[in-house]
Amino acid sequence: MISSIIFPLLGGALIGLSASILLLANGRVAGISGVVGSLLAPVRGDVAWRVLFFGGLLSGGLLLAWLRPVSFGPPASLSTGGVGLLVAAGLLVGFGSRLGNGCTSGHGVCGISRGSARSIAATLTFMATGALTVFLARHIF
């Protein structure tokens, strides 16, 4: 029991630390969909830190791929149906997170830490539709 939650807790604590560093140093909310999504409509003077944050994410990913490749799970082999599913999933995640002003990090971590009613509602909503989707995909169809 303890061993199964120690990594989630430790990883979560690092995510909270990262969000706190970005708030303390840059005065920004660590919402990934907002930090990176805003690069698609770049505003002069508000680009470099976003690119560097993204670079940090990728660098962290490279460190993980090198030292702890198990983090990413087994590589998937893509069927035609699998590609269609991934495209639909990506479109929905991108469109929904920008329309809803945040994702798991912006609403789920930063917003809830702030006690924001909007973020609590958003998090409950995406948890519910996520669970419903998995329920339908795994147990109905």
């Binding site: 995640v93 997170s97 809803g100 519910a128 539709t129």
Partner: peptide, 9 residues
Amino acid sequence: GSALFGVGW
């Protein structure tokens, strides 16, 4: 937006 995001997730 959050509902759609959850479906994609």
